[in-house]
């Protein structure tokens, strides 16, 4: 295998996507970028990545979550159902709860990603998580 795996980054912040891509390229991953949830879904089907790195807050607060829930529960996307998802966000994970809204009712019930990382992250931190998620899937 030429690369360690193919990773899809879904993030509307082009700079963030670029720096994340550089970290992953330097560690021999292949990288594809999508700039919103809709494009993300399309790329998932075209590229069939080994891992998705997904920003929570894009155009709307729930865009990231709705992508997770389509992937996990839409029968038309069943083939991609088990792709691990690493969620990233610059909204600080507040005391205890990972995704903080003051009122839990505003959150509703949200699908859980496989792992979560606060932005910004250290390159090593990201690479460790990515390697682990991909290994877990292949196991």
């Amino acid at each position: 295998m030429a690369t360690k795996g193919k990773i899809l980054i879904v993030d509307d912040d082009a700079d963030f996507a670029k720096s994340t891509k550089m970290i992953l390229l330097a560690d021999d991953y292949q990288v594809v970028i999508a700039s919103d949830g809709k494009q993300g879904l399309q790329k998932v089907q075209e590229e069939n990545p080994d891992l998705i790195i997904l920003d929570i807050m894009m155009e709307s607060i729930f865009e990231g979550f709705s992508l997770v829930s389509s992937l996990r529960s839409d029968p038309r996307l069943a083939a991609y159902k088990n792709i691990p998802i690493l969620m990233v966000s610059s909204v600080r994970s507040d005391t205890g709860s990972r995704f903080a809204f003051d009122d839990p009712e505003d959150m509703g019930s949200l699908p859980e990603p496989d792992d979560y990382l606060d932005k910004p992250f250290k390159p090593k931190e990201l690479l460790d998580r990515v390697a682990e998620l991909i290994a877990r899937r292949r196991a």
Binding site: D13, D15, F16, S19, T20, M22, I23, A26, M57, S90, V91, R92, A100, F101, D102, D103, D106, K119, P120, F121, K122, P123, K124
Partner: peptide, 30 residues
Amino acid sequence: RNFVTMVTHQLRSPLAAILQYFEVLLAGIG
């Protein structure tokens, strides 16, 4: 209720993007 979360996002996002570049550069990746 959600104001603080929205402001947090607006303030932190650009900073996070900048810091991430620094992390990449300091790791020698660039």
